[in-house]
Each structure stands twice: as structure tokens, then as C-alpha cells.
């Protein structure tokens, strides 16, 4: 084992723990904090199924953003879809060919779409970055971290594309390294600089996920404005602390 490989093994484990531990921690917090009042933004669904549909529509098509700003929507949507396609493409590096859905991952369609996604991701990110610079209102609300996050993901996309088109890495060895992490059997990592840059940036993104605005991904599902059923007259909504107040003075009896 090279020193470099040992360092990356440690970095991977730390990043994975921070990422999943951090998100789990936040999600549990969001679940634990009560929503004391009914506040769905109306018109809102009057059934649970309707709420699922509403959220589905938001997650898949960015419905509200579409209504808000077509430019932000088109760049944002292209970026996120590209991210999803790139994610599918990468699955073949982390799952064993023995797994039953291997053919779903390791096929021409997923793999070539994954390539194109690298370019469209850059396009989407460039659009979002340009908007941050060019629109005075968006520039006003942007902090350094807002720009850097876009640049970080652009760096990930660029280095990923470079591995495909400019400087190949030993992909067999890379997969051995990744599978070794799963099996707690550390393997060597190819030492190509572009690969290392790519992986380092991905690990950094994973670490900052639970402490940054990237929490919008899980947070979306917890917004009471979107996930509540519009039925306050039919069904009494009462939080635990609201019930405590009632108990104290007994005025609701």
C-alpha cells in the first residue's frame, strides 16, 4: 500500500461518515422539531396522495422554480438532471458485476448519457454562475461560498471529463480501490493527478454537504408549506407543545 492510498482510504471513510452522519442528524432534527400550525401554501392538496404528487412534481420538474424564473429553471434543471445521469454512470465503479442490476448500469445508454451529462452539467453550472455575476439582485444575495460551490462542482465535472477524454486512469485499479473500501480490504489507488483532484473535490463536497445550503436536498421534503395536507377544518392539528399550553389553562376543554 502506498502512503497516498492510505491517506485516501482514511479520507473516504471520514467523508462518508460526515456525509451520511451529518445528513441523518439533520433529517432527524427536521423530523423532531414540530410544525405547530397548519401552513401549507395554497392551493394545496387535500389528501396525502396529493401531497406526494405535489412533492414529486417539485423534485422532478422544479415546478415552482419554473414559474419563478425560466433562466434559473433551465440552467438549474439541466444541472440537476446531468448530476443524476453522472451518478448513474458512476455506479459501475461501486457495484459488483455479480449484482443483479449490473446490466442496468453497465450498458451503452447509461454510459454514453453519463458522458454527455458531463458537458451539460458544465453548461448548467456556467449558466447559474453567470446569473450570479450578471443579475444585480442575485449578485447582491451571493456570498463567496455561493460562487465557490458552483466552481467546486465545475471543477469536479471538468476533471471527470478530463479523465474520460484527456488522461485515462487505471479504471480497473480504481474500482479495486473502491470495492476494497466496502470490504474493509484497502487497495492501492491509481496516482494520476487528475483523478486525485477529481476525488479530492468530491470528498470535499461530501464533507460540506451537511453544513451548507446543499441541505436543500433533504430539506425540500420537510417544508410544511409544501408537505402539509390542506384539511385543517376536518382534522385537528396540534403539536406536543401546543397541547402542553392547553393543558395548563384548560380553556380548550
Amino acid at each position: 500500500m502506498t502512503v497516498l492510498s492510505i491517506i485516501y482510504v482514511v479520507l473516504f471513510y471520514v467523508a462518508i461518515i460526515v456525509l451520511f452522519g451529518g445528513i441523518a442528524n439533520k433529517v432527524m432534527l427536521y423530523k423532531r422539531v414540530p410544525a405547530p400550525l397548519k401552513i401549507p401554501v395554497t392551493p394545496a392538496p387535500i389528501t396525502r396522495g396529493g401531497v406526494v404528487y405535489r412533492l414529486f412534481y417539485e423534485v422532478v420538474f422544479f415546478n415552482s422554480l419554473f414559474r419563478a424564473s425560466k433562466w434559473t429553471w433551465i440552467f438549474g434543471w439541466i444541472f440537476h438532471v446531468s448530476l443524476l445521469l453522472a451518478f448513474f454512470r458512476h455506479l459501475r465503479y461501486v457495484i459488483s458485476p455479480d449484482v443483479f442490476f449490473w446490466p442496468l448500469v453497465n450498458n451503452q445508454i447509461v454510459q454514453s448519457f453519463g458522458h454527455y451529462a458531463g458537458f451539460t452539467m458544465l453548461l448548467g453550472l456556467a449558466g447559474l454562475l453567470a446569473r450570479r455575476f450578471l443579475v444585480d439582485r442575485v449578485r447582491y444575495i451571493s456570498s463567496a461560498s455561493d460562487y465557490l460551490m458552483l466552481i467546486l462542482i465545475m471543477g469536479i465535472a471538468t476533471s471527470g471529463l478530463m479523465i474520460v477524454y484527456v488522461a485515462h486512469t487505471d479504471i480497473i485499479q480504481l474500482k479495486a480501490f473502491i470495492m476494497g473500501l466496502f470490504l474493509a480490504d484497502p487497495q492501492n489507488l491509481p496516482s494520476d493527478p487528475i483523478l486525485l483532484v477529481h476525488l479530492t473535490m468530491v470528498l470535499f463536497l461530501a464533507v460540506i454537504f451537511p453544513i451548507s445550503k446543499l441541505l436543500h436536498a433533504p430539506g425540500l421534503f420537510f417544508a410544511p408549506t409544501r408537505n402539509q395536507v390542506d384539511n385543517p377544518r376536518e382534522k385537528r392539528h396540534l403539536s406536543a407543545w401546543g397541547a402542553e399550553i392547553e393543558k395548563k389553562d384548560g380553556r380548550n376543554a
Partner: peptide, 20 residues
């Protein structure tokens, strides 16, 4: 700790500018 809306909203804004 009492309002999920506030806790979630403090975290999730990505400064996309849709509301601006």
C-alpha cells in the same frame, strides 16, 4: 426548536434568486 418551518427554512435556501 419549536417551529420546523424556521429550522428547515434557515438551512435550505440556496440563494437561487427565484424570489428576488
Amino acid at each position: 426548536g419549536k417551529y420546523r418551518s424556521l429550522q428547515v427554512f434557515m438551512d435550505t435556501c440556496v440563494k437561487c434568486g427565484a424570489c428576488t
